[in-house]
Design a protein around this nucleic acid. Sequence first.
DNA 1: GCACATCTGCGCAAGTTGACCAGCATTTTC
DNA 2: GAAAATGCTGGTCAACTTGCGCAGATGTGC
Lengths: 177, 177
Amino acid sequence: MLVNLRRCASRKAHTLVIMTSGTGIDALDAKLIELLEAEPRIGVLECARRLGVARGTVQARLDKLVSRGVVRDFGPRVDPAALGYPVTAFVTLELRQAVGHQPMAQRLAKIPEVLEAHTVTGAGDMLCRIVARTNAELQDVIDRVLASEGVLRATTVIALAEQIPHRTLPLVKEAAS
Amino acid sequence: MLVNLRRCASRKAHTLVIMTSGTGIDALDAKLIELLEAEPRIGVLECARRLGVARGTVQARLDKLVSRGVVRDFGPRVDPAALGYPVTAFVTLELRQAVGHQPMAQRLAKIPEVLEAHTVTGAGDMLCRIVARTNAELQDVIDRVLASEGVLRATTVIALAEQIPHRTLPLVKEAAS
DNA sequence: GCACATCTGCGCAAGTTGACCAGCATTTTC
DNA sequence: GAAAATGCTGGTCAACTTGCGCAGATGTGC
């Protein structure tokens, strides 16, 4: 009864291959993403049934979405908290101008607890998302970050609660105009 | 040749159901997640082949990971930039103490461009991740946020580049000790 | 030693996938 | 206006995977 969508996400060639490179999301695309987001375990066939369109259409749409980059992948979403890292913090780094962002990012990438990093405007130069097992260990992670050459200062903000967990669905619906 | 993993992520019952509620990740678990992250389109059977274990084992592990919450889901990962929202910003909100965080979060949740929101320590009360089509529209979104009752001040930082895209793999490997 | 937990390997029916094709409606191009 | 391109539909086919059950092998702790 269940199907696999992940697979179709990379089908090589299909009669219905669409090359519309243009941007923009269709209402059907949005519904498709929405459906997959809600029930990732259903498959192309199920989607087709639910959306009331032909299977080939769903496959073509999915191919298009993936090839356009709208849908990055269908990888497993890991929850750091369940993994034993319940502490999340946002750390703003001030860097020495001499060191470029690239080398800095490479050094940060070596620290597993650094889940994300952006160069930003404002007083700081980089904003990182960091996790740790405990507050004490968070300090340890930050120390490791500070040990990286080029980091002048680190301002840490601890995330107490996740009010809105990472989501894109509303955006998808909004984009389907 | 390809398989669907998403499906197994919710298998009802299997002879090998494991109820180990304890935390911690196994080396096999880590390899499994790693494999799925790298090639989301392969399936349980393929995984079993690649990891050199029985299919039932892979299915049991996956069930366990999902039931434990380590793997949240296998939903499609949407890229806001490809959707037409290339501007990302982190906005720190200062709230009037009278308004609780919950109602504030509910109001923020109504704005599609708000992808994430955390309550945080420090000078600000909330940190949100916001996207927009253009810088001009970002201003518009921020205005909408400011219009929410209880927001005293908003400090915005624009993300210039994504140095380290959201990742959890290194953490998974690290946790598999 | 015994119970318990976990992995292994096998089997089967049912369902899905991938690929292809012809037909048809709509939109774009000449 | 006619031709061409594009997109959706509905059907078929073989090959593969899934879900589920079961018996046996292995390993660990009391």
